[in-house]
Design a protein around this nucleic acid. Structure first.
Lengths: 147, 147
DNA sequence: TTTCGTTGTAATGTCAATGGTTACATCTAT
DNA sequence: ATAGATGTAACCATTGACATTACAACGAAA
């Protein structure tokens, strides 16, 4: 299984919101066209980003804008916002191993620590990159295109 | 989405194979009972572990055994063996962003490096734990139960 | 105050993966 | 031969992802 594309779409959307902020009204239609998907898919994701307090969305007249400094938005926050992993647990532990069995009744205790560590390593790496890193590089590439 | 329980089941199975090696013939029935699932589910997983050269499975008379030293089997190898993530990519990138859009045509290049790093952080952490770590701790817990 | 463009959200559909189950051919040791 | 295994195909139910249609609610501007 892979981590849902909601995550990369959310990053794309936040990037586009910032890059286009002075040029266009960043509606779900515009964003959907950039991502190349359906506007409703975008609206669902911007609702999640709004619930996580990362953006404002203007009902009625339309458009979205960042609510925090890009340097204060880590990829981990975005990942958590779009809820790619149920209950926050990256690993799916098989339910109720046999407690009659010495291995069955102890494996959970042994594995839990390790699984948590792996998940933390992953999430810590996500903390290291912020939206402003993405924005800088993206804007740079766009600038280079113009030569 | 969560990483398939095949992963934790595989660890459980390998642990049980070693713990019970002198006591029982570790058939798919026995292992299924320890994991508390269907024997066919176990057989599918032991086939994957066999294909990855981690175990031998004896056709006919039955039973499985480790093919490598537990200290030489990392959780990463087990994870790869059971193929929880298609094509090895942990993240699902939304296909074909709009190339008419400056963000759409550049976001992939910007994100790819970051995603790879996050995946590597995760996989490196998996390399740090071996089956022998799991075995030691499990055997210790079993021993403690007997007091 | 009506109209228009937009958001918010429910309902529905398709697809793929997971995990469970039955069934059975095949193998091997006794 | 037979008994106990494995290897594997077939099928099913459930779930989540993503796409899509439809429409109510909203807000600004004509």
């Amino acid at each position: 299984m892979q981590i849902s594309s909601r995550f990369t779409i959310a990053i794309h959307v936040l990037t586009a919101i910032d890059v286009f902020k002075d040029e266009y009204k960043t509606t779900s239609d515009l964003l959907a066209s950039s991502v190349h998907t359906n506007p409703v898919v975008i609206r669902r994701i911007i609702q999640q980003l709004k619930a996580a307090d990362l953006i404002d969305v203007i009902r009625g007249s339309g458009g979205a804008s960042l609510k925090k400094e890009p340097s204060q938005i880590t990829l981990l926050e975005i990942y958590r916002a779009v809820d790619c992993v149920e209950s926050g647990d990256l690993f799916h532990f098989h339910e109720d191993p046999n407690t009659q069995c010495p291995v069955g009744r102890n494996i959970h205790a042994v594995l839990d620590n390790k699984l948590i560590k792996m998940q933390e390593a992953f999430e810590n790496e996500m903390k290291k990159t912020t939206l402003s890193d993405i924005l800088e590089e993206t804007k740079q590439l766009i600038k280079e295109e113009q030569n």
